[in-house]
Design a protein around this nucleic acid. Structure first.
Lengths: 221, 221
DNA sequence: GTCTATAACTAGATAGAC
DNA sequence: GTCTATCTAGTTATAGAC
């Protein structure tokens, strides 16, 4: 099935979904990146071929190279866009509020909030992180740099919260940060926009459990 | 680099790591699966070639097909082994104890405990789940079946705990289950055996935070 | 900006000798 | 149980016509 006489990089687009061919060149590019991100998220970066991306866009694989010089460039743009947005939001949260617990719960809300807009990017980041990092060259080193900056911002709030007595001091700050970070991002595995649970509900649940605990009755010791 | 006159399925093993060639056939097979699992975990299932697996074992790719009929069969065995072990442990925990909170914290400990033995398998399961599920055929349907059985076991304990008043009733059981499950497995991303934190420490931290909360002071309303 | 045609290569898998 | 040799199919990417 899906037979075509070309085994190479072609195949007439025939009845492909050629979407809005209007708009500026940069909008066109963004649109292509978005389509690719969805495919990367669904099947994985490597399992997604440039032919599939092109087909989805209603063009042929060769034409894709008018917009991007490689498949890596596309996934690069997917991840970079997400990381720039989320770090910017975190910085804004830090600047607008001082109370550690307030900042931290705002950061939790920001994290879950990105699930809607950046669902595909987050999925790719989680599933293909190891692979992209294993590629030769330093092209994806910024992934680790962004991760480090985000870690610093979280850790600072956790430690300040402990220092002022808002958070219990008998928990490892780094372990706590990782637990919070992972629990937020990993939600993309099952989160569905327009599903039973919206990101605000999920964030509230998370804050409730992590801050106050699941158990009833007296507090720890 | 790494140049050889063969572009096919060959390449003299030369100075490869040919390990213990002794032992029963089934031990040999298990050993190969283990080597493959490590590669799958590091680079991803698709990025790992049968040639790399063979090289790691000190044989040629063609020889691998004496043991397995396909690359998929190998990853199948990796995941199946892990899932069978963990579900068996969960069942034992349910059988040996009745108190919901005790069972649940035991399940948490079991989860983190598998990180050491099954680190590679868990990594593969997380990173390549979407891809394996997207493959045609029903070969990997058991992934979802195992997931469902595990979910039932956890949910039962959470709901019983709420019914007997051990856990607060104002949290969504399913959301709570997902949060606990994800937080445990995702730990493979950064967990290193023989690192600063062992699985017991991580499990204790987890139970502390999730059961009693991070905040100091009075309990939730 | 897209298509045609193809280059250059790598993947998983097989058949049969040893 | 391993190696030799090879097949088939699929991959990213390019060059130039339109």
């Amino acid at each position: 099935m899906n037979q075509r006489k070309d085994s190479g990089g072609t195949a007439a687009p025939v009845k492909a979904k050629r979407a809005a061919a209007t708009g500026s060149p940069s909008e066109r590019r963004e649109h292509l990146v978005k389509l690719a991100a969805e495919l990367f998220a669904r099947k994985g970066f490597q399992a997604t071929t440039v032919r599939e991306i092109a087909l989805e866009a209603g063009i042929l694989s060769g034409s894709l190279y008018h917009h991007f010089d490689s498949k890596e460039t596309i996934v690069d743009e997917v991840l970079r866009t997400f990381l720039e947005d989320v770090t910017a939001r975190y910085r804004a949260a830090l600047a607008s509020e001082d109370d550690p617990r307030a900042v931290l719960s705002e950061m939790v809300r920001i994290g879950f909030g990105t699930l809607e807009v950046h669902r595909a990017a987050i999925t790719v980041m989680q599933n293909d992180w190891n692979y992209l990092r294993s590629l030769p060259g330093d092209r994806f080193d910024y992934l680790v740099r962004a991760e480090d900056e985000i870690e610093r911002m979280w850790m600072e709030q956790i430690k300040r919260g402990q220092a002022v007595g808002q958070f219990r001091a008998d928990v490892d700050p780094k372990l706590t940060y990782r637990m919070m970070r992972d629990t937020i991002w990993v939600t993309v595995r099952w989160f569905r926009p327009n599903g039973r649970l919206d990101t605000t509900t999920i964030a509230d649940h998370f804050v409730k459990v992590v801050f106050d605990g699941l158990a009833t009755g007296r507090r720890h010791s």
